[in-house]
Amino acid sequence: MENTLGNFLRSRRARIQPEEVGLPAHGRRRVQGLRREEVAQLAGVSVDYYIRLEQGRGGSASDAVLDAVARVLRLDEAEAAHLRSLNRPPKEAPARLRGDRRVRPGTRLLLDLMTGVPAFVLGRRMDVLAWNALGDAVNGFSERAGGKPGSPPNQVRDGFLDPAARTFYRQWDAVAAETVAQLRRDAGLHPDDPALAALVGELSLRSEEFRRLWADHLVREKTSGVKLLRHPLVGDLDFGYETLAVNGSPDQVLVAYTAPPGSPTAQKLALLASWTATGPVPERAERTERTESAESTDGS
């Protein structure tokens, strides 16, 4: 079994140089970054205890110890929360292991009322559980879902395995790193989720980039930022985004893309909104016509 806590701690101390924390850097060092003995000294714990903690044999460490280790390793808020998640023994009820994919009617109504804003609901493992018309027009969720009930699009799988993603995301490298860091945080919160483990296993086998990023043990919580897209119909779209917790559904967040009024992106959104109000966007309409034509030919 993977020692996730130990791997995370080793990856974090490898990025801290001795001189950064006031230690001499003389002599040849066998490891990159801080030694375990140095972390223990700076955190005020015994060397033996810290070694057992990295080896996964330290039991459930106190918050005081974890806070001290987080301070030494210069963990940010998301990384410190991840450390606490990895340290705690799993207490998740079996019924919750897969996560709740049901989106409340009120949340769906809210999405539909956001007519001028592309919006969608993300669940555990970054499954896309629901979206509004403009969110679909921008991201193509319904096409990626393939019309299969219970099989929502997955942002991680699509981002790494769909070749079109590298064109759609104008900063694909940054998006890929952020996505894996968010999934790593999810894995810390839900260590016994079999579907998440299966997703990580699948992507590790099929994507060298995912495998490399997963090994970095980066952890981030995406709350807001910038999303730069290249839409196949309207071209470049420059969005801000906000991520809002869905109260009562702890595994779900609502993501909304924003653009300043009058900006080129807002004008292109208005064009997409007019298409969605009158029927399928042109690309989908052409695809539908080709399909109907083929079916007519087959039946003649």
Rank of each mutant, 00 (worst) to 15 (best):
T243Y: 00
E92T: 15
P118H: 08
T288M: 13
P250F: 04
T276A: 14
L203T: 01
P89Y: 06
L269Q: 03
Q17C: 10
N87V: 04
T179E: 12
L244N: 10
L244H: 12
L122A: 11
D127T: 06
N7H: 09
N3R: 02
E295W: 05
L9A: 13
L113C: 14
L244I: 15
P89K: 06
G201R: 09
H217N: 14
T115E: 14
V69E: 10
V156D: 06
T278D: 11
W214C: 11
D298I: 06
P149W: 04
P261M: 13
P282W: 04
R15M: 12
R12H: 08
T167P: 05
P163N: 12
R104V: 07
T278M: 01
R206L: 04
A256P: 00
R84P: 00
G150V: 04
D112V: 09
V21C: 09
V45F: 00
A273V: 01
S274D: 14
G58R: 10
A95W: 04
L228Q: 05
S263R: 05
A119E: 12
L23C: 01
A133L: 11
M1G: 14
G99I: 07
R35C: 13
P250S: 08
T288S: 12
P261N: 08
P18L: 12
V281G: 05
E286H: 08
F168A: 00
N139K: 05
L122F: 02
D63A: 12
T107Q: 12
R124E: 14
A198I: 10
R88D: 05
A130Y: 02
G27N: 11
F141E: 14
R101I: 10
